[in-house]
Amino acid sequence: MLLITCPYCGPRAESEFSCGGEAHIARPLDTDALTDAQWGDYLFMRKNPKGVHREQWNHAAGCRRWFNAERHTVSYVFSRFYKAGENPDPANANGALP
């Protein structure tokens, strides 16, 4: 069971949250000019790293707010929790903060 720290509510059990997948995927602005390959990339392609990953979480059984987390996908150790809209410098490959 992961212990996840909601930036608004504090540490809570994993079962209160739902994971929203990779974070910081910006919707393209000039949509008319996109090729099929660019659309496909935006819609479907994912980083899926074996290492540090930034992802979206929703505190579904709590404050119901979205936030971001940075987590190592092998050790599952969280290096950081931050609010949506923030974009701090990434941790290094081992999950250590800058």
Binding site: M1, L2, E14, C19, E22, T73, V74
Partner: peptide
């Protein structure tokens, strides 16, 4: 598990 993971273990819930 709902999240990306490469650890060959899953969560208890």
């Amino acid at each position: 598990d709902s999240y990306v993971g490469y650890g060959q273990r899953g969560s208890f819930p």
